Amino acid sequence: MAGPKDLDPSSSPRALLGAELRHARERAALSQEELGQRLFVSGSFVGQLEAGTRRMQPEFARMLDEVLGTDGFFARNCGAAAKSKYEEHFTEAAEAEAQARAIRQYAPLLIPGLLQTHAYAQAVNRAYDPTTPEETIEEWTEGRMARTRLLDHPTKPLLWTVLDEAALHRETGGRTVMAEALHHIAGLARRNRVIVQVLSFSTGAHTAMQGALKLMEFEDAPPVVFFEGVRNGRLEDDPATVAQLRFTFDLLVASALSREKSLALIEAVAQDYIHADHP
């Protein structure tokens, strides 16, 4: 029987690698849970590899070749599937984001990437790395703008964002940049492309005071949550953890302003920025 062909890096390597993994697992008559036990991971993790929502690391590729008898196929090809234009700590999250059917996020300090404008993203990237050459900043910014094209589709993915009011008032890039950024969010909300709510200062203490939160759901893989810190991040697929943080998000939604009041506040703050520049 002919073995699997090496992957073409110009196609969709991660999706092809996942399809080959599913084929090899089924040929070995193993369930996702059974294969996961041999790899010391969960069955849902195997499912995410097959769906292409998780990156196949070299150590897993070698173990898969050994368990499934695939003659080094996964070890040879996981490098092609691992190529990414994003920083290492964010790569898995960005690629999962691109395949998600629903994204629910809480942003405590800044406008999140999918809702950013070019100028806002540029200001954020410059703040992260004040001494980086301009061409590198622009490269990072274009990468972030590429992510926002997910919203070009009229309905997918569902994007539900709870913005802390602090993100509206943290002047990033100047007043003109902030006005443009907030009008951009308001425009997406008015076109019913995204759901945006503001968690106002008057809410006081709330359930997510310790940091940002991003939950992602998929058509053919278990949901995941992404934890992000300063220059680090990780995906978590433990069902109990994901369920607990979905409840956290639900509490944030319940505590936030309604969609109508949130939109009014976003547009009012945008106008404040404009009037401050043009007294």
Score class of each variant (00 low, 15 high):
118 H>A: 11
25 R>A: 01
56 M>P: 04
81 A>W: 06
109 L>C: 07
74 F>G: 00
79 G>K: 08
35 L>I: 08
100 A>L: 04
101 R>E: 14
65 D>W: 05
57 Q>S: 12
82 A>V: 10
130 P>S: 02
102 A>P: 07
59 E>L: 14
108 P>Q: 09
131 T>C: 12
68 L>C: 06
40 F>M: 13
116 Q>I: 09
30 L>G: 03
72 G>F: 06
33 E>C: 08
102 A>Q: 13
69 G>Q: 08
72 G>W: 05
62 R>M: 09
47 G>V: 05
80 A>Q: 06
124 V>L: 12
82 A>L: 13
56 M>V: 12
81 A>D: 01
77 N>D: 02
55 R>W: 07
48 Q>D: 08
119 A>K: 11
46 V>N: 00
91 T>N: 10
128 Y>T: 10
131 T>N: 06
107 A>H: 04
132 T>I: 15
27 R>A: 15
129 D>G: 06
56 M>F: 07
132 T>F: 14
83 K>A: 14
125 N>S: 11
24 A>P: 03
34 E>S: 14
99 Q>L: 15
57 Q>E: 14
39 L>F: 06
70 T>A: 04
102 A>V: 12
42 S>C: 04
42 S>D: 11
33 E>G: 12
79 G>Y: 06
27 R>I: 15
111 I>T: 01
41 V>K: 07
62 R>D: 05
117 T>P: 05
43 G>T: 05
86 Y>N: 08
51 A>F: 04
36 G>R: 02
41 V>Q: 04
44 S>G: 15
122 Q>N: 10
46 V>K: 00
100 A>E: 01
83 K>C: 12
49 L>G: 02
56 M>Y: 01
122 Q>R: 13
103 I>Y: 01
59 E>A: 11
27 R>D: 14
93 A>V: 11
37 Q>D: 15
89 H>C: 11
130 P>N: 03
78 C>K: 03
70 T>M: 03
46 V>H: 01
88 E>V: 15
97 E>T: 09
62 R>T: 14
23 H>R: 11
80 A>H: 13
87 E>S: 14
128 Y>P: 07
78 C>P: 05
69 G>M: 07
99 Q>A: 10
49 L>M: 09
96 A>D: 01
68 L>H: 00
59 E>F: 13
118 H>N: 09
110 L>N: 08
130 P>D: 04
22 R>A: 09
79 G>F: 08
47 G>R: 05
92 E>Q: 10
